[in-house]
């Protein structure tokens, strides 16, 4: 449990920093006496910090689950069409029933994300087995195509601004109390994955091995799909697309600790939270008092980490 402890310890100062940094002046010591400071803390800073932590943890776990489902280390919900499908679902519901309550929107996005991910899983079954790197490539292209569909529809219906926020740059600057709580459900879905950790680990050994061990691979597959889709959809609905977390964090953790999911999932969750939190803080500081969206910061940091992973050792499944 050492890595988990170490990560939790880095989370603490990061969280504290996240609570202190912001455009408005606020003194943590005066929260008890100054109602203004207390308001900023409870309405803006605390929800934002929680949202970041929940998002990072949930996305990290969704990435692990996705990689076990596909049995390929180079995928994550953002590169398999899941996120774009969720956006497509959101767009559809925004057009059909603009006034629908938030939970209907959430359901639509989740269902669409599930369908998109299922489509991806279908597609990659047709790939030659030894071409490990074709899998992420197919996923990225599928994402691009789905993204083009979203853009096209958005263009025709003047919803492009809204889509731009979902699809391209996730950010936490709009998070206040009352507008992030859906993320708790995402975190719950991710926690569900922890209870089924052994099943996913076994599925990662291959369908034959899973069946041999008396597991129904299809059932585990469906459970994984639900977890991935729900997490992705909720994150997109609430804060937008946050790329690379599900990819680089599980890879780095697996490098150090292996693939025993029951032990690694908490570390992955903590690592995901720490990385998103760090990037969010960078985004807030670098052009203070303006903000660079965390999605943009992670686009740079994450792709560099990804390239490093790609070239550090020969590609493996």
């Amino acid at each position: 449990m050492r890595p988990a402890l170490a990560l939790s310890l880095t989370l603490l100062p990061l969280s504290a920093a996240s609570l202190l940094i912001g455009a408005a002046d606020m003194n943590l010591a005066s929260v008890g006496t100054d109602p203004q400071a207390a308001l900023i803390l409870t309405v803006s800073r605390l929800p934002r910090t929680l949202a970041v932590i929940l998002t990072g943890a949930a996305l990290g776990i969704a990435g692990v689950v996705m990689q076990q489902l596909v049995r390929n280390r180079f995928v994550e919900p953002g590169t398999t069409g899941t996120a774009e499908s969720a956006a497509l679902g959101l767009l559809a519901i925004a057009l059909i029933a603009p006034a629908a309550p938030i939970w209907v929107k959430m359901m639509a996005a989740s269902l669409a994300a599930m369908a998109g991910t299922a489509l991806f899983l279908r597609l990659i079954r047709r790939l030659p087995a030894r071409e490990v790197l074709l899998v992420p490539l197919v996923g990225i292209v599928l994402s691009t195509i789905l993204g083009a569909m979203v853009t096209f529809i958005g263009w025709q219906t003047d919803l492009l601004q809204m889509i731009g926020i979902w699809l391209f740059t996730g950010e936490f600057s709009g998070v206040i109390a009352g507008r992030y709580e859906l993320l708790w459900i995402a975190a719950a879905a991710a926690a569900l994955a922890w209870f089924a950790a052994d099943r996913f680990a076994i599925l990662g050994l291959g369908e034959a091995a899973a069946t041999g061990l008396g597991l129904n691979p299809d059932a585990v597959m469906r459970l994984g799909l639900v977890v991935v889709a729900v997490v992705t959809a909720l994150v997109i609905v609430t804060v937008g697309m946050i790329p690379f977390i599900g990819l680089v964090v599980p890879n780095i953790v697996a490098r150090g600790m292996g693939d025993n999911l029951r032990a690694t999932l908490p570390v992955t969750a903590a690592g995901g939270a720490a990385l998103v939190l760090a990037c969010d803080i960078i985004g807030r500081l670098v052009r203070y008092p303006y903000e660079v969206p965390v999605g943009t910061v992670l686009g740079v940091v994450g792709s560099l980490l990804f390239l490093w992973l790609l070239y550090r050792e020969p590609a493996r499944g």
Binding site: V132, L133, L137, P243, S303, L307, L310
Partner: peptide, 18 residues
Amino acid sequence: DVARLILTGVILGVLFRS
């Protein structure tokens, strides 16, 4: 390794754009 080459290019695209 062609697949790795293409993947590198795609990721570089993301990196440059970000």
